[in-house]
Nucleic acid binder design. Sequence first.
DNA 1: ACAAAAGTGTCATGGCGTGACACTTGTCGT
DNA 2: ACGACAAGTGTCACGCCATGACACTTTTGT
Lengths: 219, 219
Amino acid sequence: MTATAPETGTTGPGPQPPGRRERKKQRTRDALVDAAFTLFSEKGFDATTVEEIADAVDVSSRTFFRYFASKEDVALTFQEEQTRAVLAALSERPADEPVMTALRRAVVGIARACEAGELGFDPERFQCMLSMMNDSPTLMAGSLEHAQKKQALLIEFISERLGVDPADDLRPHVIAVATTCGFQAATDAMRRHGGAFGSLSETVDKTFAILENGLGRER
Amino acid sequence: MTATAPETGTTGPGPQPPGRRERKKQRTRDALVDAAFTLFSEKGFDATTVEEIADAVDVSSRTFFRYFASKEDVALTFQEEQTRAVLAALSERPADEPVMTALRRAVVGIARACEAGELGFDPERFQCMLSMMNDSPTLMAGSLEHAQKKQALLIEFISERLGVDPADDLRPHVIAVATTCGFQAATDAMRRHGGAFGSLSETVDKTFAILENGLGRER
DNA sequence: ACAAAAGTGTCATGGCGTGACACTTGTCGT
DNA sequence: ACGACAAGTGTCACGCCATGACACTTTTGT
């Protein structure tokens, strides 16, 4: 150990604007997430205590809470990044696309990326989350709450795109909820029936198709 | 005190199959709900402790947890009864009605009943819940979790009605989610924009109309 | 009147989440 | 290179939620 000198001076490829402190912080954070998921998949979500997670990384549990607001939070890191990705994808869609199409493509695109393990999304970890939620109401609640926040952003996006005021027009609300729920229905189906409907992205795509066509026709 | 004799013997109008104990229990439960909502509306959900609620009814906080699984639980009593009512209404819909129509009418019907203050649903209390959820993520999470459970029941109902296997067919999932979300979108809109879209039942009705027609047409 | 059952209170425990304060470590100016 | 300053961390302490165990009171059925 002890590469005392390097780093200082003008040397250092230094493509990292953030300093060493920042990197360390990031490493701790990552380590916490890793440790958490390891323990979760070993013992389950509820049976894992914050202290255990912290101990595994050798920090105090107090520190854990400086990185994550709650135990659910660490398990849902994944979802937050996913949301960020969806919103980013959304803003790249051409403006003349019908809203629902834009939403569909953005969401399906991200689902594919997840499956491919891109963007730091670990499919295995995703699977772990789904099964954890099955027997941990707490976590499920957290997940749903997160979805709710995401929805507020969607409403904003959709309203702007449709050029309407969400206080006047109900459609943005319905479309946003439908989007959230479309995704939810897909994960839900996968939770309950494994991969019976194909991959996540396929399931999401089918779900959107049903929503676009309208539910009035069913029987 | 001490009406020692009455009640015993063959006397007693006794139109209540359940005994005195049962009634007492019910009264305690109701008192807890009342006290809880009073305190909630005074101080907010998070700022109210279980102990305060219990003290207000003069029972131990331990007892509180014998009636309700959690603090959210007491606040969501309302929703549980609502769900029960929806499922009941659902089973009364004629079998030849399209599923979506049946769902729509059942849900709208219950929403109307709520507004009318029937079934022990207090509109004022409902309003209190909505505003509480605005600044209490915990409660919101609980509410969403409840919705999730309700959804599982819906999937069952819909699958049976469509005569399909939910493990094979994605539609029951989507329709159930849509129903949940139809309702959710409506309450959501009311939370965010007050009564701008009319009453709850009207809003729900409009939401369902949009969903039935399909979202593909928008712009 | 009495025994079983149900409800409740008290005590004790454990995990979650947060505030306060002191200490270590990275950062930046000179 | 040295020192001031800020950021991150550990420790201690606290309050709340939720649950288990056990003893005590009330209700119920006979």
